[in-house]
Each structure stands twice: as structure tokens, then as C-alpha cells.
Write a protein that binds this DNA or RNA. Structure first.
Lengths: 130, 130
DNA sequence: TTCACTCTACTACCTGAGTAGTTGGCGCCG
DNA sequence: CGGCGCCAACTACTCAGGTAGTAGAGTGAA
């Protein structure tokens, strides 16, 4: 159930495709990543390696394999982001946000919008539990 | 002047040590990373490899080498964070912050504090330019 | 039946990061 | 002067990620 910390570029891209699709044959994943210009077998190989690590699983449909992600997107995000925060910001997530602001990646009013939206959702959840 | 996108764990740790120290001999970096239990030569080798890539430089002091970082911390942060945002959040930094909030890594009031601090600094800078 | 096609399985490489032993030069302490 | 110790250079290896060709099996069409 624990998502891994180290995910290569291709692996993450594949996972994202699977998260999006739910379940997909190799060819479909291949097409989703077509901008990378990779061979179909590259995707297939990667998928097999990822299955060994438990990142994905497959079931057979005719002679095709349908793959699906076995790791939770939320968890993977948490791990990846957490890793970055640890390695780069001494484990302080606020430092990361601060960086985003300072570097001009995010504007103050965008932050405010987000803040409001989150606070709102929070409220709704608290007021009408379940 | 462009910081690289891919930085290994050790390389980043070394850079952080050098950013902190400004300039340091191998032995000092080694001590800064002592919790990793690495051999001194490991650090030395890594430093040499990093120098080949232009990440660090050295000057000689007696028979020792003093290393210094040749890349700007801000830039490296920007690249690393930017890379993550691209790979994981479709290039939307707000999605990252949203994730931090949802995952409970950051609380709303912490965000507010930070927001105020940043707005304040902004103001000061605008009011008294230079 | 046979042939072409489509997939997966196997095998093979390359590269970068990380890790560390061994070597060889050079200065210092007796 | 001679050995000891420090330090950079060189060499060597492992591992994971990525990339892809080739082989082999099953399927559907002619």
C-alpha cells in the first residue's frame, strides 16, 4: 500500500495515463505518450518491470493485456512531494510554497482564490458530515 | 547558468552543504553528510563528477581542494520544483499547493501567516523601492 | 491450411548515480 | 634520510531506469 519514493519520468507518465484511463492495453498507453516517440515495446517492457514492483497489474482480455495502476495517485503525490520537500526544503512545506510565491510561479490572488475554495470545501464537509 | 533538472540525492545534499558553507574541503562536506555513513572517497568522487558537469568548482589550498557550488540555489529549486509540477501536476503550481492542503501537510492558518508575511515584504519593496 | 499480423516474453544495451578500494605524490616527524 | 599519513586521481562495480530488437505463440483471413 506504500507508494514508492523514486519514480522515473517514464514510469510516472505511464501511471498518470493509467490513472486517467482506469485500465488500458499497452497500445493505448503508448498512444497517450506518443509525443515521446517511444517504441511500443519500450512501453511494454516498462509496464512489465513496473508490474514486478507492484506498481501496476494486468488482466488478460483475449491476447491483450489490460493494465491498471496499483498505487494510489494521492499517495504517490504525497511521497513525491514529501521527498522533494525533505530534500530541498528541510521538510518544511511552507518553504516550498514560499518559494513558489517568490519565484513568481504563483500570484497572491491565485493563492487567495485557492485558499477560499479549500476553506469552503472544508466548511461544507464539517457542517454536513458524510 | 542554467541549473540542471536531474539531481541525485547525494548531489543535492552536497550542493546544500556547499551553499551553507560557501566553500569547503572534501572532509568537511563528508562530515556534514556523516549521517549517511559514506566513505570519504565517495564524496570526493562525487565532487569530481559534479565538477565535470559544472555544478561545482574548486581551488587549491595547499594540497587540499576547496570546493564551492557553481549553481544558484534559487535556480536549482526553481528547476526541481518546476520539474515536479510539470511531471505530477500538469504544470499547475496551484495544484501542488492544493495537494499540500488536502494532504494535511499545511494548515490553513499557516498558509495565512505566510501569505501575510509575503504581502508585507511585497509592500515594503514597492513602497521604498531599492 | 497457410500466411500475415499482433502481442507478449526474452534478451541486450546504454547511461547516470552512487559507492568505495587502490595508487601515487608530497610533506612532515623523527 | 626514511617511513607515515594525508589527499586527489584512477579504476571498478552495482543498480535502476530507459530503450528497443527479436523470437515465439495465437488468431483471423484467404
Amino acid at each position: 500500500m506504500k507508494g514508492p519514493k523514486n519514480l522515473g519520468d517514464l514510469q510516472l507518465a505511464i501511471l498518470r495515463a493509467l490513472w486517467e484511463r482506469g485500465e488500458a492495453p499497452v497500445a493505448t498507453v503508448h498512444e497517450d505518450l506518443s509525443e515521446r516517440g517511444l517504441a511500443l515495446t519500450t512501453i511494454a517492457t516498462m509496464l512489465r518491470k513496473m508490474e514486478e514492483k507492484g506498481l501496476v497489474s494486468h488482466r488478460e482480455q483475449g491476447r491483450q493485456f489490460l493494465y491498471r495502476a496499483e498505487v494510489d495517485p494521492e499517495l504517490v503525490q504525497k511521497n513525491l512531494v514529501g521527498d522533494l520537500v525533505t530534500r530541498l526544503f528541510d521538510g518544511d512545506p511552507l518553504a516550498l510554497i514560499n518559494h513558489l510565491l517568490r519565484a513568481g510561479e504563483v500570484e497572491l490572488d491565485e493563492l487567495d482564490d485557492l485558499r477560499r475554495a479549500v476553506a469552503n470545501a472544508e466548511q461544507k464537509r464539517t457542517r454536513r458530515p458524510k
